[in-house]
Simulated assay, not measured.
Amino acid sequence: MPTKLTDLKAGQSAPDFSMDVTGMDEPATLSTYSGRYLVLYFYPKDDTPGCTTEALGFTAHKAVFASLNADILGVSRDTIEKHNKFIAKKDLGIALGSDHTGDVTDAYGVWVEKSMYGKTYMGIQRATFLIGPDGTIVEVWPKVRVKGHVEDVLARLQAISA
């Protein structure tokens, strides 16, 4: 049974995952990032306005995140091929994971029923998890508003790294 996003809280172990990630020959797992912070953010779809803004924001701040021992991984259900086109088109500098099976979005509780113009459908709720070097969830942003979000995540990471 899929996890509910509200079930995941700071202090808990982050759900493990395995998925293809751009720039990697082998699937990435949670242990791939062991010893480093991981900004694991979920977004609905490549090359859409909000998702592009968020990806460009993380790309712009990638060096600062790296200086704080943090990796950034964006996740959607798009294919690696779509991710690579998105990265090339927008000159992104971050890794993107392809959850083509839906296992990761289910494990993190971000595959939810959405509604638009009176129609309901299933989709990814934009959410971010800051995971510590030991695999523990440090912070959860369950309903992300794109504007200012990257700066919020960075400020939280800076606060715990100080």
Rank of each mutant, 00 (worst) to 15 (best):
G11Q: 12
D71P: 14
D91G: 04
H149R: 02
K62V: 15
A162T: 03
K82G: 06
E81M: 09
K114P: 13
R77L: 07
G109V: 06
T32K: 13
Y121P: 02
A127V: 01
G74R: 06
T3F: 07
C51E: 07
Y117L: 05
G118E: 02
V146S: 12
L157N: 14
I87W: 01
H100P: 01
N84V: 04
A127F: 03
K119W: 09
D25I: 07
Y121M: 11
Y108I: 07
Y33E: 13
M19L: 10
L157P: 10
F65K: 12
G74I: 03
A10S: 15
L130Q: 08
T136C: 05
S98I: 04
F42C: 10
D134M: 14
V75P: 03
I160S: 08
T53M: 13
A88G: 10
E54P: 03
L38W: 07
D99H: 05
D20S: 15
S34K: 15
Y37G: 00
K45S: 03
P142A: 09
L38H: 08
S13A: 15
D78T: 02
R145F: 14
E26A: 13
K4R: 13
F58Y: 15
P44C: 09
A155C: 08
M122Q: 03
D91I: 03
L68V: 11
I131Q: 02
H83S: 13
L92H: 04
Q158L: 05
M19S: 01
L157S: 04
L154T: 15
T29E: 00
D71V: 09
A60L: 10
P133N: 06
M19T: 01
T22V: 01
P2E: 07
S18Q: 05
L130P: 11
L154Q: 12
K4T: 13
I131C: 00
G74T: 03
V144Q: 06
K89C: 04
T105A: 09
E113V: 09
V110K: 12
P27D: 01
A14C: 08
S98N: 04
P49C: 02
K143I: 12
T52M: 09
Q12A: 11
T79R: 05
P15T: 00
L130K: 07
A70F: 14
F42P: 06
S98M: 00
I87Q: 08
V144G: 10
S161K: 08
V64T: 15
T120H: 10
A159F: 01
L157F: 13
M24F: 02
K143G: 01
A88L: 07
G11P: 15
S161L: 02
V21M: 00
K45R: 06
G148R: 12
A162H: 03
I94Y: 02
D7N: 14
H149K: 13
I80C: 12
A63Y: 14
M116Y: 10
E139P: 11
S76L: 13
L68S: 12
A60Y: 12
R145N: 13
S18N: 06
R77C: 09
T105S: 10
G123V: 01
V110L: 09
V39M: 08
Q158A: 11
Q125S: 13
E113S: 03
T52S: 14
M122T: 03
V146N: 12
I94F: 09
R126M: 04
G11E: 08
S76M: 11
L5P: 03
C51D: 04
L92D: 01
T120Q: 11
T22R: 02
S115P: 09
V138A: 15
